[in-house]
Simulated assay, not measured.
Amino acid sequence: MIPVFDGHNDFLLRLLRDPANRQEIWNPGEGKGHLDLPRMRAGGFVGGFFAIYIPSPEELDSGDYEAIMDAPPYDLPLGALIGVDEALPVAMAMAGHLMWLERTGDLTICRSVADIRRAMDAGRIAAVMHMEGAEAIGEDLDALHVWHAAGLRSLGPVWSRPTVFGHGVPFRFPGGPDTGDGLTEAGKRLVKECNQLRIMLDLSHLNEKGFDDIAAISDAPLVATHSNAHAVTPSTRNLTDRQLRVIRDTNGMVGLNYATIFLREDGRKSTFEGWDPILRHLDHLIGVLGEDRVGLGSDFDGATMPASIGDVSGQQALLTALAQHGYGEELVRKIAHENWLALLQRTWGG
């Protein structure tokens, strides 16, 4: 079984929504959602980025989303900016759930690549604390240092709605990432402070001008933890070839998102059988970025999955499909985990 290190999941959001049942959700698992400890073991999932994310209070009913996003074209409204006072208690609760997972003895919050390797060797899930949207950090950036001390090692300045730091892309198909203004002055300061703390910056969800601002300011490799190729699926959330070349030139990385809306050429949310959409995106990403700069960024527990994957237990089937597609064993291992560990070494250092 090839170990899989994953670029993005929303498991903490599941725990946030049902905290009373978190032990059952984690282990032995309810059989719901995409992640729990037994299925992680079955799928070779050894670790990844666990997202702290603030839900929009005015989000559409999930049934509405399903219908709209399965009938392109669509252009979904974004929620309003959420202030730090509203976001902080939610973010703290999600961080608390991650720390509870560590207390179960089955997971380690990792602050270095050495931590990740030790957790993998010990058979514990290696978790990187990630913030998807920096609403829980104020413009003075003091909270960034608190979060770093708590274990934060990866941060996306925005989810799709705006923050005090910048602007995300709407959920629009078809569409491109050039959707608004770049980083605010506070956002530019955030980038520099993350560089000093060696917190990895995640470009997923960021609009094109914000992407370019980070590329101009940051001294770290550019990373999109869960994004796909715009040339294959023209969604606002996917990266253009120009953006991919910018990432390549910084020796950065992209994690393939399994979400059906970012894989299907028609932009629909409905699931699908087979591997062709995934293989088209991976072929394109590798063609532009090279074999050392592509990994996996599932979006488990945050998106609709291809039926062939289903949940985390299906990841070995995906790796088998890559091998059958002609990817050699060395490349499959790079995509599965080695590229992520090398990227984090370049970003975090020793």
Rank of each mutant, 00 (worst) to 15 (best):
Y258Q: 04
G210R: 07
A229Q: 02
S235E: 04
P157S: 08
R237D: 00
R17H: 13
L101K: 03
A136C: 14
I335F: 01
T260H: 14
H205M: 01
T184A: 10
G29H: 08
Y53E: 02
A114W: 12
I137W: 09
F300W: 10
I25W: 00
F211G: 01
T236V: 05
T179P: 12
D283G: 09
D212T: 08
A87K: 01
T236I: 00
W26R: 14
G255S: 03
G290L: 07
A51P: 08
L256F: 04
R117W: 05
P28Y: 14
P19H: 01
T179F: 07
R124A: 08
D276C: 08
Y258L: 15
G63D: 14
P221S: 09
L183V: 15
H8K: 04
E139L: 06
D121F: 07
L341A: 04
G133A: 12
A323T: 15
H226M: 11
A149V: 09
G63V: 12
A20N: 05
S235H: 14
R280M: 11
G79H: 13
P38Y: 10
A122P: 03
P234V: 01
G182S: 13
T184G: 06
W348E: 02
F173W: 15
G349N: 14
S227V: 04
G350K: 13
N339S: 14
V169T: 12
P73L: 15
L222E: 11
A126C: 06
A259V: 00
E132Q: 11
N238R: 11
N238Y: 05
M129D: 00
I52H: 01
Q23L: 02
D266V: 10
G151S: 11
V332R: 14
F211S: 01
V90C: 04
I199H: 05
V90G: 04
Q345C: 07
L15E: 02
G295A: 09
G349T: 06
E273R: 11
